[in-house]
């Protein structure tokens, strides 16, 4: 199950609902992402999460499907918030439930790793120096020439 929402979520209630009635679940792994008050040497007052409605849900659903194809999951959940968030607030919840812990741990890590590189969300930080769009951490250097303009007069 995936959800994109502005309002906060209750981790305990979400996890209880996720595995309710399913006694095949022996392990439930969870990752919760929170807003920090520092980024490098900058103080963060708040951040605003923007997304691409439609594509975001499509990518999250695909990431979840991929995890379910790789591991024998009994249940999985991705909740991602959008809008303005202050330090300490929850941004994202990812959970994976399986019969045994290893699949749950691995799938949970996979879900958040893929989400971070594929789901179209962007963070705008409010700092003392003004608003700054967060740069992607692992900028793909191989992509440097990817969008180079073809030498073609027709593209005027």
């Amino acid at each position: 199950m995936i959800r994109v929402q502005e309002h906060d979520f209750d981790v305990g209630a979400e996890l209880a609902a996720l595995t309710a009635g399913n006694h095949q679940v022996g392990g439930l792994a969870v990752f919760v992402g929170l807003v920090r008050d520092m980024a490098g040497d900058r103080d963060i007052d708040a951040m605003t999460l923007e997304h691409y409605p439609g594509m975001t849900e499509k990518m999250l659903a695909r990431i979840e499907t991929e995890a379910n194809e790789r591991w024998p999951l009994e249940a999985s959940l991705i909740i991602h918030r959008v809008g303005r968030l202050e330090p300490g607030e929850q941004i994202v919840l990812v959970a994976a439930a399986s019969a045994h812990r290893q699949a749950a741990f691995d799938a949970c890590q996979f879900l958040i790793d893929w989400l971070k590189t594929k789901a179209p969300f962007w963070k705008l930080e409010e700092t003392g120096q003004g608003a700054l769009w967060v740069d992607a951490r692992d900028s793909d250097t191989a992509a440097t020439e990817r969008w180079s303009t073809p030498k073609k007069g027709a593209a005027e």
Partner: peptide
Amino acid sequence: VALFPPVTGG
């Protein structure tokens, strides 16, 4: 067609 920078969610 959507144009955007590398994603930074999570």
